[in-house]
Design a protein around this nucleic acid. Structure first.
Length: 213
DNA sequence: CCCGTGATTTAT
DNA sequence: TAAATCACGGGG
């Protein structure tokens, strides 16, 4: 509770939230067990002008309703008939922007995470990918709209980030948004360079990635 | 490379 | 009401 991120963290520019979530720790408490991982990859979705966002052009439906709430809530959606993805809503009430959590470095509850995931190829695949991390942490549509600043079962803890971590942040195009025309190549995906828990493409060798400022 | 899978969205 | 879409992952 003490170290939990609060509204003043989430109610900011969505790109700033996406970048500063890197290195923070996502915590899920399930069946009395703590499942936790360090956030190593995020994507920002900029809302109404963003052709890749579920709220592009002001779309407001039962599915994306939680994106319209105040920053600090969860937005969980179901896609491809079998996968759930977790977003952290950012910005002010009525500004439908969010950050997709794409990968975690597992920290706590690894045995339970493995049980939740079932057989996997290698340990690196435990939380590497947006639908893999929700499966590992047992997050589904029932967690949609949860208040991360108050929930006992889903929240983000603040960690002190080392200067070397901040310096290793890279940006690149978002994954799986080829349909988004002029928005598909914008560098709105953020990750730690050379971290093996980041989903591909990663590292400086990937085209279109760049250092920040 | 291809394909499962079904809720959600969009077109008729 | 019907068709297309999809912020993915697993298998070859």
């Amino acid at each position: 509770m003490a170290n939990r991120l609060s509204h003043c963290f989430y109610e900011r520019d969505v790109v700033a939230v996406a970048r500063s979530l890197l290195g923070q720790v996502l915590v899920r408490v399930d069946q009395g067990r703590r499942l936790a991982g360090r956030i190593v990859e995020t994507e920002a979705y900029l809302g109404i002008p963003d052709k890749a966002a579920h709220t592009f052009n002001g779309r407001r439906t039962a599915r994306n309703e939680s994106m319209w709430t105040r920053g600090g809530h969860a937005y969980v959606y179901f896609v491809y008939g079998m996968h759930y993805c977790l977003n952290v809503v950012a910005g002010r009430d009525g500004d439908p922007v969010a950050v997709l959590l794409r990968a975690l470095e597992p920290l706590e509850g690894l045995v339970t995470m493995h049980a939740n995931r079932g057989p996997i190829r290698g340990h690196l695949d435990l939380c590497r990918g947006p639908a893999r991390l929700t499966q590992a942490l047992n997050i589904d549509r029932t967690m949609d709209g949860v208040d991360l600043t108050a929930s006992k079962t889903l929240f983000v803890e603040r960690r002190r980030r080392r200067a070397t971590d901040v310096a290793s942040i890279r940006a690149g195009p978002r994954v799986g948004v080829a349909y988004a025309e002029d928005w598909k190549d914008k560098p709105l995906r953020f990750f730690f360079e050379d971290n093996p828990h980041v989903s591909t493409p990663r590292g400086p060798s990937s085209s279109h990635t760049c250092k920040l400022s």
